[in-house]
Design a binder for these strands. Structure first.
Length: 285
DNA sequence: CACCAGGTCTCTC
DNA sequence: GAGAGACATGGT
């Protein structure tokens, strides 16, 4: 992958390791929607327009630097894929999701979003987050920002229920208040397991959600979020289905060493697409 | 009407 | 620690 910056545009000229569909459809991001020639993608209080042509991708935004980091453009995914190809049964998943990248997203946004994601489905997660932004996000003109912690911490449980959060409403109230009260989001000096334990002090954050936050908000590559799909991926890799999800997550984290997060994304996309009979392409067209 | 969706919490043993 | 049940909501 190679890119250049021209004014308000990032132009990606070699797209082997950058496929918008792979990136957006592997479950790491909820705030985007399809437009004619690409996508609109929102993060924090910013947004970009992504347009794909035959052999290049153009990203238009008022904050080029933010989205260079957001899309993880300075990382060599060729090397990552090469490394993971050294593992059995990884060739197909990597080929299938060859253009996946792990985004660098806002931590608070990840925390709130993945609390909502628990025991929920992706279309509904998206719509709840959209209602959340519409109700509380700063008006940015043609779109609404993700609400700040200060605003979120002011809401009642009834409000979160009113946007469809269901029983997670209480988790959101509690966590927003803890964040507002100075809960430390800096995990740079913590090991992976320490960071995970730290985040799990927040209401609504268990093993899986903590891994999602560490992977998508902190780019911690030893995190391997394990849900039903990764459970199936575990069976695909090892032929063993008798461990608990937590044990599977730990084993995968150790097995792929510092690359578990990347491996997880290729596997998630691969297994989910392959066993999806209804193949919901609702987003497309 | 059941079952499921990127699980977590709480209460048991 | 591991296991069982409750938990909102909307789709199939």
């Amino acid at each position: 992958m190679h890119y250049v910056i021209e004014n308000n545009r990032i132009i990606i000229t070699v797209t082997d390791d950058f496929n918008p569909q792979h990136i957006l459809d592997c479950g790491q991001v909820f705030r985007y929607h399809k437009i004619d020639a690409g996508y609109k993608i929102f993060s924090k209080n910013l947004f970009c327009i992504l347009i794909y042509e035959k052999n290049r991708v153009i990203i238009e935004t008022t904050d080029v630097n933010y989205f260079v980091t957001y899309f993880d453009l300075d990382r060599n995914y060729g090397d990552i894929k090469q490394h993971l190809l050294g593992y059995p049964k990884m060739a197909e998943p990597i080929k299938h999701g060859s253009g996946i990248r792990i985004l660098n997203q806002d931590r608070a946004e990840m925390i709130i979003s993945f609390i909502i994601s628990a025991n929920n489905n992706i279309p509904r997660i998206k719509s709840i987050i959209e209602r959340l932004c519409n109700a509380l996000g700063e008006d940015m003109g043609e779109y609404k920002a993700f609400p700040t912690i200060a605003v979120l911490a002011n809401q009642s449980e009834e409000f979160f229920r009113s946007i469809g959060a269901g029983y997670r409403a209480n988790y959101l109230v509690e966590t927003a208040r803890m964040l507002q009260n100075g809960f430390d989001l800096d995990c740079t000096n913590l090991s992976y397991s320490q960071a995970k334990k730290h985040l799990m002090q927040l209401k609504g954050i268990g093993n899986k959600v903590a891994d999602c936050i560490l992977l998508f908000g902190y780019h911690r590559q030893d995190a391997c979020p394990t849900d039903v799909w990764i459970e199936r991926a575990f069976v695909y890799l090892f032929g063993d289905s008798k461990l608990t999800r937590t044990a599977m997550s730990d084993k995968l984290s150790q097995y792929f060493k510092g690359f578990a997060g990347y491996a997880q994304q290729y596997l998630f996309y691969y297994i989910r697409e392959n066993s999806n009979q209804n193949n919901s392409k609702v987003e497309e067209e």
